[in-house]
Nucleic acid binder design. Sequence first.
DNA 1: TAAAATATGGTACATTCGTTCTATAAAAGA
DNA 2: TCTTTTATAGAACGAATGTACCATATTTTA
Lengths: 208, 208
Amino acid sequence: MRKPGLNSTRENILQYIHGFIDERGYSPTVRDILKGCDISSTAVVQYHLDVLEKEGRIHRDPEIFRSIRLSLKKNTVLIPILGTIAAGTPIPVPNSDNWSGQATETLEIPQDMIGNKSVFALRVKGQSMIDALIDDGDIVLMESADTAENGEMVAVWLKDSEEVTLKRIYIETDRVLLKPANQTMKPIQQTRDNVEIQGKVVGVIRKL
Amino acid sequence: MRKPGLNSTRENILQYIHGFIDERGYSPTVRDILKGCDISSTAVVQYHLDVLEKEGRIHRDPEIFRSIRLSLKKNTVLIPILGTIAAGTPIPVPNSDNWSGQATETLEIPQDMIGNKSVFALRVKGQSMIDALIDDGDIVLMESADTAENGEMVAVWLKDSEEVTLKRIYIETDRVLLKPANQTMKPIQQTRDNVEIQGKVVGVIRKL
DNA sequence: TAAAATATGGTACATTCGTTCTATAAAAGA
DNA sequence: TCTTTTATAGAACGAATGTACCATATTTTA
């Protein structure tokens, strides 16, 4: 067989459909694909479309012209707003159960803001994050994680004071430095076993 | 003539097309519209489609089935990032000339973040806006305006110090109060003729 | 190597569907 | 009222297009 997923005719067709829709705003016909992919018979196109549909990568409606739809997402993504974060609140970690469509509220954001990462959103309540330049009512986009690179903005759970706060993290050998985003404010020190990373902050959205 | 824009056949058609695309993912044919809008001749549909296209509300490609596209925006909008704002920089006000496609960079944001307002974006340089919880690199969404309601976040040009700053504005009889978004910081007073409103801030986006 | 699965080609039918032509009615402007 | 514009109607032509049938090549599996 040909290269499993790469340069095969079928991947070409898929890519062609994608580009066609992108450019023209509607789907190509069998014969558009035929020309666009240098195929010499409509039956071949039909054959590959049948396979692609069985694989769930496209949808078609029988006997309806230009009805091909890609199963790909668009360039915007629906993010579930899982809840509220405030000082003293642990972050509700999303698991595959409570995830699907059950978030009472969602937020549509451009896909390039989050890349491929699995992201959820939290509404910030109160001014407790204000030293990270995050105000009451702001929405933070979070990626769940329990580790982080130095300098990343993370949500950390401080065990002794029992609160969550957003800070830039710098892990050193014997301690952890938590710096507010606001450079005029001083970093705080924590012992390594007192901080528990809950997630990385990948974005902030403020509607006024 | 019928009600100018409301319940006319043409508006029905437009709404039907919108719903059809939303639901099926491709455009209706002339005959789909015929059935969906209780019209008894394809020529009538054709006639209204011709008018709609002349009005610029739809696009079609001749002799291509299901090629109707709505001129409506999707639920995301491309915002031009017109430039950079920093302390001391006046805001470049967009006029119809420099607007079209010439902004070197654009930002795709959800349409419900700005409603119907005409909005542009500025990248914030430096920490000069940090007391308004706006950091270096943040993008502010602005609506040009030279007046504002009390309590709105506005970009104001301070004549004496020759700088732009983002603050909440409260106009009183004899003076203007400018409050940072950060409630722990004190407001500053200005005489009314020293402040010049450049625009309203309608959103903040921070990518991390 | 034989058989089965997968991929490619050629052709043609039947429907779908954009378009056009003509006629008539209703509304607006003069 | 007469004319012009706008809207509705019926029908039909012909091109666009999904689909089916058959044959053949290529690759995989046994």
